[in-house]
Nucleic acid binder design. Structure first.
Lengths: 102, 102
DNA sequence: CCTGTATATGAGCATATGTTCATATACAGA
DNA sequence: TCTGTATATGAACATATGCTCATATACAGG
């Protein structure tokens, strides 16, 4: 193995990439993000459509909020969520398209 | 929230996407794959270049082998690894490029 | 105010994940 | 056949993760 020059990743890059990839790799978060990619959506609607408990959805939304991947607006008691990081959603879609078209 | 038609992900798609994304989200595996993207590489070289223990590298290579993301050839006592799933490597590169160019 | 509805949050728990340490395996060379 | 080198593997352990259950919060309507 001759000593070629490698391009090295900085620790920051690795950690940031890891953060993003872990965020979208969990099935529940993936389903939420894929739904939000299609439309803004209330928590109750996510529960109904995805068949996942309110608590589980809400915990994962908390996670996605911390990562700044989603945003929300409030109308009375209802919270409408939308995605807030276009690039992350694009990456997710690309992975999904790859899998579905093979 | 009116009842629009959503595009739903099949469980298979979700699980496969999750598998791939989890595989590349771990920092050690990410570094290995990024190195292999640049050149075929022996285990010892990975240990040296990445500064990660032989055992940790080898365990993660086992994981990547199970997922069919890498292949290897043997020369005496030395195992040379290379990536074996172009698309997964492309996805990883895209994530990294996104992070580095922002 | 009191009640109901929508959502968030905390505690506890079970499982998954990644590492280290110790050891096994397989081959090369003397 | 003995020794050294390169890599793989198993056990044990610590930490992270995602869920459920129970409860808190905040607002709307009467």
């Amino acid at each position: 193995m001759e000593k070629r020059q490698h391009h090295f990743l900085s620790e920051n890059t690795v950690e940031e990439a890891s953060r993003i990839l872990k965020a979208i790799s969990d099935p529940t978060r993936m389903k939420i993000l894929y739904l939000l990619f299609q439309e803004e959506c209330s928590v109750g609607h996510m529960v109904e459509v995805l068949g996942i408990s309110q608590s589980a959805i809400s915990h994962q939304l908390g996670h996605l909020r911390n990562l700044r991947l989603v945003k929300y607006r409030r109308e009375g008691n209802t919270y409408y969520y939308a995605y807030d990081d276009e690039h992350v959603v694009n990456i997710l879609n690309q992975v999904i398209e790859h899998i579905e078209h093979q």
